[in-house]
Nucleic acid binder design. Sequence first.
DNA 1: CTTGGATATGAACGTGCGTTCAGTTAGCGT
DNA 2: ACGCTAACTGAACGCACGTTCATATCCAAG
Lengths: 200, 200
Amino acid sequence: MARTQGSHAQITGPRIRKAAQRLFAQQGYAAVSMRVIAREVGVQAGALYNYIPDKQTLLYELMRDHLLELHEAVGPCLVGPAPARLEAFVRFHIAFHHARPEEVFIAYMELRNLTPANFAEIEGLRRRYERVLAQMLHAGVREGAFSVPDEKVASMAIIAMLTGVNTWFREDGRLSLGDVQDMYWQMVARMVSVGGTVPS
Amino acid sequence: MARTQGSHAQITGPRIRKAAQRLFAQQGYAAVSMRVIAREVGVQAGALYNYIPDKQTLLYELMRDHLLELHEAVGPCLVGPAPARLEAFVRFHIAFHHARPEEVFIAYMELRNLTPANFAEIEGLRRRYERVLAQMLHAGVREGAFSVPDEKVASMAIIAMLTGVNTWFREDGRLSLGDVQDMYWQMVARMVSVGGTVPS
DNA sequence: CTTGGATATGAACGTGCGTTCAGTTAGCGT
DNA sequence: ACGCTAACTGAACGCACGTTCATATCCAAG
């Protein structure tokens, strides 16, 4: 048999990516075989190679696409006065990452499974995102709106604490995502001394 | 051949753990084979089973021992007034994790490679550690020394940002570990409003 | 109605996996 | 000097891996 039903190309490609994303996030890149991905999609393993050159590229493209989408989406946070931009960034980062737990998990956990060349590309995209926040802090400090011990260190600290939300937040818990955004913004604002003093 | 040199039992056991720790941290549990671990130690794969029941238990014990050591080591941070305890905790967490990058990496990245039973044990130990900080914050809030939006959320945020140091800090960078400890303590202190106001 | 390209199958390639175990050696206690 | 046992080897088990490829089928266009 071959092509047991109608034309599938525009369906199968995305389905492969979705299945790989789910499985990589759940079990890890190294633990997921091409045959398992294929079964999830409903084809034989060989058919996957009509859509991807190899397993490594599949992983790389998932991570790259995620980070490119992240860069596009953060754009609107880059306008206005520094404190407003920072607040927008905090809320954005939490919401964006919450909406994509699998992509985020993969982007953080599977870096070491990239070939050196692919790793360099992904790492570059990550650094660019970190610099977005660092520059935001830098501008705020220059304006006298923020005070931090070190702009780069503060940006790493903030990103780490924001990304950490994904490890514990559950939709059905006692807090809504909005609550969490409020709380994190309050903590970040205090951390960078927005307004030069602590908000009550 | 067998036992090509003198008695090795008390040497080989720890060497297996060290090798596994290094390799698991570098390449991931699923990507490291028993044969590779054995080669690193200088024995055949079969010999490993004189020291460990199986690969899964090797991973589990690495994580468990790390977390038990963490609990023992955090003890001294639990005395004194709340602000002093929190400062001690911040400095301790950074230093302890910095000294054990491989253990930390494994403990965070390989959770999904544990069997459900082992996962439950490890997760329990992690939660206990998180509760140490949460109770510290709770006490500080009760005393009026701290102010946070939510004690549990704040503890997750603080632990995430502290653990994040391991992802970027390099011994040979422009900052010493002491610098970083100072900066993070300053940021955390502001975040929980130590003293009810922002330290300059 | 024919045809050609898109889409998929299923077998096969060589390799490596975790684990077991009978056999072999080295060094200790006596 | 010698046996005992701890320590290790090396082969073997069945299975799964990523990838390739000849082949088969389906659909759209002419």
